[in-house]
Amino acid sequence: MSAPVLEIKNLNVGYGLGDQGVRAVRDVNLTLHRGEVLGLAGESGSGKSTLAYGLTRLLAPPGVVTGGQVIYHPAEGEPYDVLGLSDERLRKFRWAETAIVFQGAMNSLNPVHKISVQLTDVLRAHEPKMSETSRLARAREMLKLVGIAADRMDAYPHQLSGGMRQRVMIGMALILQPQVVIMDEPTTALDVVMQRQILGQLIELRERLGFSVIFITHDLSLLVEFSDRIAIMYGGRIVEEAPAAAIYRDALHPYSKGLLGSFPALRGPRRELTGIPGSPPDLKGMPSGCSFHPRCPKAFDPCAGNIPVLGRPGTGDGRTRSVACWLHPTEEPVG
């Protein structure tokens, strides 16, 4: 496996402090390697978006990072903790090193400015020495990269379709050639045809430009197809992490199995679709022990009492994967 580019260590993110606060992300350890697509899946409220906002320090109050480290390894130079950056250094770090494509394809662009202005103001902020003509040239180049005609530079966001807007956002995310691109449900607002088209394009661009992707979605079927590794989140914790194929073939955590069982396979024998009974846990009153145990079909004695640790399972391909479940107790915890 190649070198890490982003290491999340014991990250805790909450909303509000003290007794009123809730912990949305709990003790998350996750490593993103150079050039890989890491999928992050889970139900609504599982903390996947909060994780993304937390590690880029974009959380709006009352959201607050309560602990942990986010170690970023720049292409050159020493690794540093993103959470410890000063405001000015953070501003420089943003977009240049880690760009984000957000959920709302429709609302991510400022309605009163032309596309060209919104593409070039990033360059103006990060590369002040660049001339106006080369800025425009660069913006045009990015549009071409995502398959949008250069004459759309003078368009306003409302003159573009949803798919085009999201492609503009992807082009914008890549304009400073960041090492990490975080995609927070980038295609939920688009129809399935457009989804595949845009994601296919992104994967192709990744091969060409060599950035890493954290791909957040509740749509596990998309992840299985487009990502290298998948991490499954439940109740603010990562419950399983494994290569995409391994998760698809043989998920270890009952929750991952439940997610996989809830969408139909395109090929292979027909099978009964099953959902996961119950609803996601309330962050204010997390169940004791493994937070999934009230809904788990395989829950047994230790589940309600003790929190399982994320670690290497004792099975055959245990080197490359980890799981937090009492069915697969670990002797080698992660993090």
Binding site: T56, L58, A60, L90, R91, K92, F93, R94, W95, A96, A99, I100, F102, Q103, G104, N107, S108, L109, N110, P111, D121, V122, A125, H126, M169, M172
Partner: peptide, 10 residues
């Protein structure tokens, strides 16, 4: 959303 994007753009 576009305000969050603007922040994220640095």
């Amino acid at each position: 959303d576009y305000i969050t994007v603007a922040h994220a753009k640095g």
